[in-house]
Each structure stands twice: as C-alpha cells, then as structure tokens.
Write a protein that binds this DNA or RNA. Structure first.
Lengths: 201, 201
DNA sequence: CGGTCTCTTGACGGAGTTCAAAGCTAGTGG
DNA sequence: CCACTAGCTTTGAACTCCGTCAAGAGACCG
C-alpha cells in the first residue's frame, strides 16, 4: 500500500470495485473535503438539497424518512467504509426526503459536484466505479425487500445482531425497531425472548 | 427523431438519462439481440447465470424469489420501456436467486457481455448511462422499502391500481398479492371492499 | 437531583393469516 | 365442440402476531 495514501478506508473501498492508478486515486483524494460530526448530529434534514456524496471514513450513521404523521421510518444503517448520502437529491438537485444522522462521532469524506464532474470527466474509470458502487447498493436494497417479504421480525432481529453485535449499544432501540419494521414494544418483547443477547442490563 | 432508429422505446430510454450522438446510439442498436417470449415464459430461473441485460421493448414481466419453503416473493413488476434482469448475476457471473417470467407476449432487446464491454469501452458515456439508470432503480427500491414500512396493504393496493389500472387483468392475483406483501385471500377481501375497481366480473 | 427521553410490561384490539371448502375459469383432450 | 380437470379466486371462521394505549421503571443530561 502506498505511503502517500491518507485515507486507506477510502482507497480500499474504491479498489474493491475498480483498479485505480496512483494518479487517478490521488486526483480524487486531494479534492476530498473532510467533515467531522459529533454523535447525534444531522448531516441532512428532509427538505434540504444535499450537495455532497459522503463517504464514512469512520463512524456510524442512520437515515430515515418521516411520513405525513411525523413517524420516522429507518431505511438504512451504515458504518465505516460505506457511502451514506442521498443520490436522488445530489444528482437531481431536488430537496431530499431523507434525514441522515450520526450515532457515533463521525468523520466524513465529501465529494461535491465540482469534484464529481471533474474526476468522472478526467478519469472515466470513476464513472465505472460509481456505477458498480450503486449497483451493489441496489442489490442490497432488493435483498432488503426480499427479507421484508420472507422473514419475520424476530428473524430480522436475530440476523441484525448476528451481523452487527454491538448495534443495540450504539443506536436507540426505537430506531432499530423501525429499521426492522416493528414497534419498540415488539422489539423489547423479542429481546426478552432472547435474553442471552440482552444489553443495557 | 431519426429515421434510422429501429427501436424508439429503447432510444427514448437511453436519451432520458444521457444525450447520445447518432453514432453512439447506432453502435449499440446494431448489436442488440432481439428475443421474443410468449406469455408465461421464463426468461430466467433461479440457479442460472444470466448472460444478458434485458430491455423490455414491448411486454410485461415479473420477477420473484423463492424462499426455502418454496414460497414465491414478487419483488418487481416491469413493462414496456424498462430493464428487467438481474445485474447481480450478470456482473458477478454467479447463479441468480431470481426468477423472471413474462405475463404478456414480450419482445426483449438483449445486451450481452461482449456488447456491454464494447460500448462502455468505446463510448464512456454508456458507463454514465448505466450509472444513472441503476441509480434510478436504486432510488425506486428505496421508496419501495419506505412504502413497505409506512403504508398498509390496502394503501399499497390502491396505489398500484392507480398507477397500473389494468394490472389485475394481466397478472394472476396471487402474484400481485405477493408483490403487495399479503396473501391472496387478503387481496380478495381488499378488492371486495373497493368494488368499483373490481375486474373479472 | 429533577426532568425528559427511552425502554419495559400488561391488557386489549385489529389487520392480516391460516385452514377449509366452494365457485369460477381457462386450457386440454376426447 | 363440449366436458373435464387443474389451478385460481372467493368466502367464512378461528387464530395470531403485532400494534395501540397506558403506566411504570430506568437512563441520561443539564
């Protein structure tokens, strides 16, 4: 690995989809904007237009959408090494429907439009990178729909804590419940059933 | 519109995301493979690797995934002017989890790997086109997750027949029920409640 | 240490499921 | 061309999981 690389998590994420030369990689890295957020700080609130593609260099973020009654529906939970933004709002310049909030102190690497346009024009391989990255996200959301159709809330809960064992310590349970598409009371009852995994106790 | 264009639906779909020159467009069009399927014919069955990106030039298709009990879960319904394939299987060369079947006589335009590699290498704008196309699909599936979280089965039903009024005539109700994430019996009861929209009667 | 937000627990209610049976429809073969 | 069959749709009744409402316990923060 190259000694000049400042953000190995970012470099690794890019190279998992395409092979970049040092020149290609560094042209982007030197244009990244670093943004730090404290715990429970909003990156984006619905109604705003997001002007960045945010990569989580370190941290934990949740997005949710509020319905007409003000109920929050958590759609995604993302941590270090993933993108967490709203490509709908970014590319359309329309107000976002999403809210994005941190649940750990978080360091983001941001691409603005100027940088995105520059690197994709200068280095077409970046257009390919983003195509593949979005493709993987798309496959992930399709799987998420399949799981909502084919599994019970309890199965989704067990799956989640198997994949991210510490999540109950990091994120309020009512948001995890929302992500699983159940109410906090139901999550509490499911957790009771699986005492060996209880936290906060 | 250019007189040389053989597939205006395809041309229109491409140009809704990027502006193509005649040369760029025709380079792809002349490489398309036409495939016609009868009603209720499978394009793909789970376990197979799909070797094409299929565009629906005319027709109607449904995809579904079967769980370990053999229950089918419909994830997407697509008609004329949309892509309907499995980009996971296509790009990874892995066996697909999906089944894709027609519910009207359907004409597909297929891109194979050779064509995809050729046009994206020769004309980087196609890499951009697919990035944007997949991006829109991704935003669509995110909305689908939001709807599964925030609406009742009845609301999803009313939404569906508002958007695609003829769908109850084209696709078996048990598949529509699956798409809405309910059982056929429940769909039947919801339809009874909204008699003004009954079909098959 | 007091207030607010979160989590838990219980009782009840409702949307959707399950099981079962009957009606309907389209496709097939005599 | 009609009769038969298999698969799809409808309907009813009982059930179940999860939601709702409500109250209390616990945790966090100023």
């Amino acid at each position: 690995m190259n000694a000049e690389i400042k953000y190995p998590n970012f470099h690794k994420a890019l190279n998992s989809n395409v092979k970049l030369s040092d020149e290609e990689y560094l042209a982007l890295e030197e244009r990244l904007i670093v943004k730090r957020l404290a715990k429970k700080e909003f990156l984006l609130q619905s109604g705003q237009v997001i002007r960045y593609l945010p990569f989580i260099n370190e941290g934990l973020m949740v997005n949710f959408r509020a319905d007409e009654n003000g109920n929050r529906h958590v759609l995604q939970i993302r941590c270090t090494g993933w993108w967490m933004g709203d490509i709908y709002s970014f590319f359309s310049h329309q107000p976002s429907f999403l809210n994005i909030i941190t649940y750990k102190p978080t360091e983001l690497l941001l691409l603005n439009h100027e940088t995105f346009d520059f690197i994709t024009k200068e280095f077409p391989i970046y257009e390919r990178y983003f195509r593949i990255a979005i493709q993987k996200s798309y496959v992930g959301t399709l799987t998420q729909i399949y799981n909502l159709h084919s599994t019970t809330a309890e199965e989704r809960y067990l799956d989640l804590i198997r994949n991210v064992p510490t999540i109950l310590d990091d994120i309020p349970h009512y948001l995890i419940a929302s992500y699983l598409n159940i109410k906090p009371q139901s999550l509490s009852r499911i957790r009771k059933k699986h005492k060996e995994n209880l936290r906060h106790s």
